Amino acid sequence: MLSHLPQALAFIVALIFSANSFANDTALSRAEQDEKHMYAIRIVFGEHIVSATLEDNPSTRDFIAQLPLSLDFDDYSSTEKIAYLPRKLTTTGAPPGVDPDVGDIAYYAPWGNLALFYQDFGYSDGLIRLGRITAGLEHLSFPGSKQAKIELVPAD
């Protein structure tokens, strides 16, 4: 009976390594899938580019369906740059509101506008987070109104 112990032990060790490898592969494929469900956009203000990633949610997919867009952005309350979209986005599955952080891109459902937050702001009902600015936040410090082109960045 003891002669089979090394074989049984080897089998158990192989089984554990196999299960661990499967778990790591599954975690990696989930991370890769999550990465594939992020969208990259650029917002071009003249010569300045603001880069961002968007979350995968119904509102974001509805927004992406409208791209490319040319929009006029205005300052709102020295906190955010806002622009009105050609049509309202779906709010299916959206939370009742969010507390945006500096760098957040959001959609304000009651007014139908896109918001780029360059200052901190508190919780707001009807606000849906679409994504985050990853570079170029400093380009939102302009006064008055400025036109921008928003486009989806092609995947590699």
Rank of each mutant, 00 (worst) to 15 (best):
A109N: 09
N113S: 08
A109M: 06
Y107S: 09
A115H: 00
F142G: 11
G97V: 05
A109Q: 09
N113K: 04
T92N: 11
S124T: 14
G112V: 03
L85I: 01
G112K: 03
G136I: 09
Y76N: 07
Q119S: 10
F142W: 14
G112Q: 07
T92L: 12
I105W: 01
R129W: 00
T79M: 07
Y76L: 08
S78D: 14
A115M: 08
S78R: 13
K146S: 14
L114V: 08
A115N: 10
D74A: 15
Y107C: 08
S78W: 12
L127A: 15
K146G: 11
G144K: 08
G126T: 12
P110R: 07
F121W: 11
F117I: 09
Y108A: 08
A106T: 15
F117V: 08
G131F: 01
L114Q: 04
T134A: 09
I133P: 00
A94C: 14
D104Q: 04
Y108I: 02
D120T: 11
A148N: 13
G93E: 08
R132Q: 14
K88I: 05
L130R: 08
F117R: 05
G131D: 06
L114Y: 01
E80V: 09
Y107T: 03
D125M: 10
D99P: 00
I82F: 02
S77K: 14
K146P: 00
Y123Q: 15
A106D: 10
